[in-house]
Structures are given as C-alpha cells and as structure tokens.
Amino acid sequence: MNTILQNQLPFIKTFVVTVLFSFTLLLIRVIKTDSTFYLFLVWNLFLACIPYAITLILCSQKTNSFIFWIGFACWLVFLPNSPYILTDLQHIKLSTLESVWFDVLLILSFAINGLVAGFASLSIIQTSLQKKFSNKIANFIVYFILLLCGFGIYLGRVLRWNSWDILQDPTGLLLDIAKRILFPYQHINTWFFTITFGVFLIIIYRMMNHYEIRKIK
C-alpha cells in the first residue's frame, strides 16, 4: 500500500465514524420533524470531501510537475467547499426554540467534518509544497490559499456561485471576480468578508498543526 494512503488510514477510519454520527443526527431530525430541509448538508459534505480525495489521488503516486500543478488547480477550485459548510449556520434562524440546539449540533457536526477534511487535504498539499520550495514559501502559499478560501466562500454564500460554474458560466464568474479586484473600494464588504474568514481559517489551521506537532513530540 502507498505510504501516504497507509498514513491516512487512521484519519479515514475516524472520519468515517464522525460522518456516520452526522448522518445519524440528520436522520433523527428527519424522523422527528418530518422535514427533509437539512438534506442539503449531505451534498455540501460530499463537495467538502472532494479536495481530500484529489490530494490522495494526486500525492499517492509519482507525477511530473505539469500533472501536479493541474491537479493542484483542480484541488484549489474545490477547497472552499470544505469550510463553506460553516456558513450554513445561517439557517439556524429558521429553527424553532425547541429545535435550535439540535440544529446547531447538526450543522456543526457536518461543518466540522467538512473543515477537518479540507485541512487534512491542505496538510498533504503543504507537505508536497515543502518538497518543492522552502518551508517559508510553502507556509506563505498555504496562508494565501486560506485567504483565497475566504474569497471562495464569499463567491458561494453571497454571490451564489459554485465550483461547477467555472465550466458552466466562466464569463459571468470571471466578470464578478474582476469587478471586485479592479474596483476594491466599491466592494469593501467582499474584502472584509474574505480577510476575516481567511484569517479565521489560518488561525484554526495553525492551532491544529501546533497541536499535532506537540502530540508527535
């Protein structure tokens, strides 16, 4: 078995258990409320796991630089889907006083799974980048990627774009992005959202890495 896949097996086993827990919570809610409203969380979690699947495929075998960067670009496009589920907490406003605590737990369980899957894929990519660049450059790229995730989340949550629109409507997507880059002062909310969410992701990612390093020591 490939070394990377072998090293990831403990994480994959634990991740499957936590995902089953999330699905159990969702099933309980469907049964108790006779509502399928939160079934979209399953699709969102599926999208959140795509970056992790891409990294396993990309880094589990030897590839030339061209293939690696093509895979890296695909991975980068889907990565914002991983932390995106955190913004699904906005649906709590639709919950009743009796169900709000359960709905918070339900959404957070999916959101944390998505975030962890994204960070796991980012950690694998960071290791690959460290083989190609110095640690400082690799770290800078990782932090920039997390800021891009903040921007990607804005595109998805506020402007309602998704990863598939790169193929379905690339012109419209690029025009929306270009307007915010060329006229930043007219889109202050875009950059405030991007920076605050990006910094939040950087902080959480650093905390998780620090914990892993201390645990290894």
Rank of each mutant, 00 (worst) to 15 (best):
A138W: 00
W101K: 05
N44T: 09
K131A: 04
K179S: 15
C149Q: 02
R180H: 10
T190Y: 05
L159F: 04
L122A: 10
T33E: 03
N189K: 06
R157G: 01
F144G: 10
A53H: 04
W161F: 03
V77M: 06
F144S: 10
L106M: 13
N209M: 13
L26Y: 11
F46G: 12
F78K: 01
L148D: 01
W101S: 05
Y143N: 12
Q130G: 08
I166Q: 09
I202A: 07
N64Q: 03
L167W: 11
G172S: 08
K32Y: 15
I31E: 15
M207Q: 06
F119Y: 06
L26C: 10
I203T: 12
I70Y: 11
L20A: 06
Q61P: 01
I202F: 07
K217E: 12
Y38V: 13
I195Y: 08
T33W: 02
I28C: 12
K179H: 15
S163T: 01
N44L: 09
L56R: 03
I85Y: 02
C74P: 02
K217N: 14
I177N: 11
A138K: 01
L167M: 11
S163P: 01
L175I: 10
Q90R: 09
V19W: 03
F78H: 05
G150T: 03
Y52M: 03
M1T: 00
F37W: 14
S99N: 08
I28K: 15
S109V: 09
N113G: 07
M208A: 13
V77A: 08
W101M: 04
C59E: 09
S99M: 02
R214K: 15
I195L: 15
T127K: 13
E98I: 15
L175S: 10
F200C: 08
I67K: 13
I67G: 09
F140H: 04
K62P: 02
L58K: 01
A138F: 00
V158K: 00
I107K: 07
L148V: 10
Q6A: 10
Y205R: 15
L159M: 07
A111V: 02
F119L: 05
W101Y: 08
L115P: 06
K131H: 06
L86V: 01
R206D: 15
V16A: 05
L41I: 14
S22E: 14
T190A: 07
K32G: 14
T196Q: 02
M207K: 08
I125G: 06
N113C: 07
L5N: 12
V158W: 00
W191I: 14
I216F: 11
V42R: 12
N189T: 11
N189Q: 11
P184S: 11
R157P: 00
F192C: 12
F102T: 09
L108M: 15
I50K: 04
S121D: 04
